[in-house]
Design a binder for these strands. Structure first.
Length: 195
DNA sequence: AGTGCGATTGACT
DNA sequence: GTCAATCGCACTA
């Protein structure tokens, strides 16, 4: 079952925390691949590190959609990044999905990534997008409806959630807007920083 | 039209 | 641990 939009917190940081433990599902013609979200980062309203900081541009309109839509961008000439839009329609903010614990379709993900090691399949924002073949063609998609990419419920409560500074940014670098599942080996960065 | 750089990754010492 | 690759975008002129 997809997450209902009404259950998603409107506030960006709250949404980032809420998404920990939820399931990201990718449907391919050849099957389904999915993973548990173990790491997120919030890019909040008025955040100098956020892509909406300078307003609407040709690349970022999806960030301004109602919460629960995909904002996907290409960076460093290599990687795509998947975000979940947050806040009310017209407000530019979102949550970066940074790492997954692979659940279903692991052979499909191994083919997409061309590596064997389970721990590294979707550990990192670019890696998880590659594992699930997420690219700009899925930008703007509603993640609260079944389709090629959607957010699903978890069958149990997540574990203890840690909080830290965000990774790889220079602006607004001190804010504790990164959330991660404490015990998970599938988290990309430091597992217990600033807690 | 030109420039600088980024919400990273993979290869290498 | 260090470091270069790589290219679309936002900004300047």
């Amino acid at each position: 079952m997809p997450l209902a939009r009404s259950e998603l917190p409107i506030d960006t940081a709250s949404l980032a925390r809420y998404l920990i433990g939820k399931v990201l599902v990718r449907e391919f013609p050849e099957g389904v691949a999915s993973g548990r979200i173990v790491e997120t980062e919030a890019y909040v309203v008025g955040d100098a590190a956020g892509h909406a900081y300078r307003g609407l541009t040709p690349r970022n309109p999806s960030l301004f959609l109602e919460r629960g839509h995909a904002y996907i961008y290409f960076i460093y000439g290599r990687s795509c990044m998947l975000n979940v839009s947050s806040e009310a329609p017209g407000i530019g903010a979102g949550v970066l999905i940074r790492a997954l614990e692979p659940l279903e379709g692991i052979p499909i993900m191994r083919l997409n990534r061309r590596i064997e090691r389970l721990r590294d399949l979707a550990r990192g924002p670019g890696r998880l997008a590659a594992a699930l073949r997420v690219d700009r063609s899925l930008d703007g998609l509603d993640l609260c409806r079944k389709g090629p990419l959607w957010l699903g419920r978890s069958d149990h409560e997540p574990g203890e959630i840690g909080q830290s500074t965000r990774i790889g940014i220079s602006q607004d670098a001190n804010r504790l807007l990164r959330f991660y599942l404490r015990k998970s080996p599938f988290v990309s960065g430091p597992g217990s920083l600033n807690e």
